[in-house]
Design a protein around this nucleic acid. Structure first.
Lengths: 137, 137
DNA sequence: CGCATTTTAGGTTTGTCACCTAAGATAAAA
DNA sequence: TTTTATCTTAGGTGACAAACCTAAAATGCG
């Protein structure tokens, strides 16, 4: 029951792309890898899935790189999980036993609320300034 | 991002124990296994973890079996996940990159709401009669 | 004691996660 | 056109966990 590292990475790299959304040059893999501390060979796969999911667009060759396909406010955590994990809070539906149906019903309800919550948070929320700035201990 | 089969099994077997909570005889493993369609050799482990988590008590020998340690209304889905999975919606906290902190913050908020939702559903909800009864297609 | 049951300690198999390797495709620039 | 910087794709690996199974030991009831 834990969030995959892949989803976390995807959120991070999308937050980074959100920061450079209005800039003209598109950041490339090595840059994104360095800024967010993600192994570049793994990041390739993640960016690919995000592109297949329609969240980002890419350009190759010199001056190539990645960019969000829509504005940061229009991309939610729900979109990210769907693009990268394919499902959010799925379960098996074997429905063999006497209580299987009721259990599935209960968890479906939890999944609904989970979906609503992830739809409510978008990439803009991930790049807002902290109200007090940063404090170092 | 999917619910483990183990948690589903745990919910089912607990629902079954909730049904026989006021009965005098305690159901034993083979019975529970049959009623809920759970492989008995796997069910053993699950029941063990539920006992270690304090959700059920057991008695061995003849007339042995399992019983809830408290009333069905006092055991929530949150309790079940914690006993069997150890965590609900945890994430890694590598916090290497530039956006890691904000991403963690966002998902922490989601986790909060997830916890609230799972705390709100208890075993009694899993054994309530369907309002219309069963319909067969 | 003898039996039914739980309890515990291992093993197996299958799959997935996180990550790497390497060759190919494309487009800008020299 | 050649070079070069990037994306694209396919595949592979090692560690780990999930979902089971096997077998023996402990415990309590009759």
């Amino acid at each position: 029951m834990k969030l995959s590292l892949k989803v976390e990475y995807a959120c991070q790299v999308l937050a980074q792309l959100a920061r450079s959304f209005d800039k003209t040059e598109m950041p490339h893999i090595e840059e994104l890898s360095r800024l967010e501390g993600i192994p570049s060979n793994y990041l390739v796969q993640i960016l690919n899935e995000l592109r297949n999911g329609g969240l980002i667009v890419s350009r190759r060759g010199k001056q190539g790189g990645y960019r969000l396909s829509r504005s940061p406010a229009e991309i939610s955590l729900h979109d990210v999980v769907c693009a990268v994990d394919g499902e959010l809070l799925g379960f098996s539906l074997k429905s063999g036993g006497q209580s299987a149906a009721k259990v599935a019903e209960a968890w479906t309800q939890v999944a609904k609320s989970f979906e609503a919550e992830t739809r409510a948070i978008n990439l803009e929320n991930l790049i807002e300034e902290s109200p007090e700035g940063m404090w170092y201990i």
